[in-house]
Amino acid sequence: MSIPSDNPILLARDFGPDAVSLAVGEGEIVALSGACDEAFLRALSGTDPAWPGGLWLKGEPLHTLRPAARLRFAHAQCAVAPRVGKLLAELTVLENTALPLILTGLGRQEARRRALRWLERLDAVHCAEWRVAELTPSEMRRVALARALVLDPAVLLAEDPTEGLSAPERFHLLRILRAACGTHGLTIVVASDDPDVIGWADRRITVKVAAAEAAEEVAEAVAEPAVPAVAAPITDPAAMMGHQSRGLPHRIGRHARGEHRFSSSVGSGSERGR
């Protein structure tokens, strides 16, 4: 284990089925290479209390907290970038980005304002009123990152953010994330074996995580009582945003600009003044 500072913002000791140990300093960009996936990143963010081992976030020992308190603290400090397939087809890009804020009870107008700011920072403001099916893969990636960052977390975790992108698109995305890290005090942890990502990061940590089935078995063995829901499930996201669902078909479409646009099963607080 390499500890970059005396007081790392994210620290794991003997964590998970494979007893992973790692430490990430505040403002650092770390690439996790090896068998990492979104499930491991979510556990590392503190949102899954079933994983064994020690986990500290901003000095808070999450492994000692009750599930509800753990979730509240983790959601306020960490964000895991959603897969592009979790963006909601019936909402616009702006509505997709603002949705996490609206779920916290923030007014729609303020939520849209903050969402626009992050879309601009991630060079996706030009497609704010588009639907997900109209986006390029690169635009989808940036919108998914904006949706994670709109709650202004201290730590961003993302799985393979450059997967499927061309070399210029990868360079563009990584440059934007580096700028966000520098200007907003963001700490970034990415799970990727992409040489471009590894070269872009400040440090590389090689980790080995058990297969999903093994992790699930361990989780069941140490599972705690059910955690109360943090927010009501999204049953009609279009209605939440104040309009009718248009029933967009899930298909590969072609945008007016003649580029391929993809959609499949398309689907953290207040700002700290940065």
Rank of each mutant, 00 (worst) to 15 (best):
I3S: 14
I9N: 02
L10M: 08
L11D: 10
L11P: 03
A12S: 07
R13D: 09
D14M: 02
F15C: 08
G16N: 05
A19Y: 03
S21M: 02
A23P: 04
E26I: 14
I29P: 00
L32C: 08
G34D: 05
C36F: 07
C36Y: 05
F40C: 10
F40E: 11
L41F: 04
R42N: 15
L44E: 08
P52V: 14
G53I: 11
L57M: 12
K58L: 14
K58V: 12
G59T: 11
P61C: 06
L62Y: 04
L62T: 10
L65G: 09
R66V: 15
R66Q: 14
P67C: 08
H75Y: 08
A76P: 07
C78Y: 01
A79S: 15
V84G: 04
K86N: 06
L99A: 08
P100S: 01
L103A: 08
L106Y: 02
G107N: 12
R108A: 03
R113D: 11
A115N: 06
R117A: 14
E120G: 12
E120S: 08
D123T: 07
A124V: 05
V125S: 10
H126A: 13
H126Q: 07
A128I: 05
A128S: 10
W130I: 05
R131N: 09
R131V: 07
A133G: 11
E134H: 06
L135E: 00
E139R: 07
M140F: 00
M140Y: 00
R141F: 00
R142H: 06
R147F: 00
L149R: 01
D152G: 02
P153W: 01
L157K: 07
A158P: 10
A158D: 05
E159Q: 12
E163D: 13
L165E: 04
P168T: 13
F171P: 05
F171R: 15
F171S: 14
L173A: 09
T187A: 02
V189S: 03
A191Y: 00
D193V: 11
D196H: 09
V197P: 03
V197A: 08
G199Q: 02
A201L: 01
K208E: 15
E213K: 13
E217R: 15
V218N: 03
A219E: 12
P225N: 13
V227L: 11
P228E: 12
V230Y: 10
V230D: 06
I234M: 10
I234W: 02
I234A: 11
P237L: 06
A239Q: 11
M241S: 08
Q244K: 11
R246T: 04
G247M: 01
P249R: 11
P249W: 00
H250S: 14
H250E: 11
I252Y: 01
H255E: 10
G258L: 09
S263G: 10
V266C: 12
S268M: 07
S270A: 14
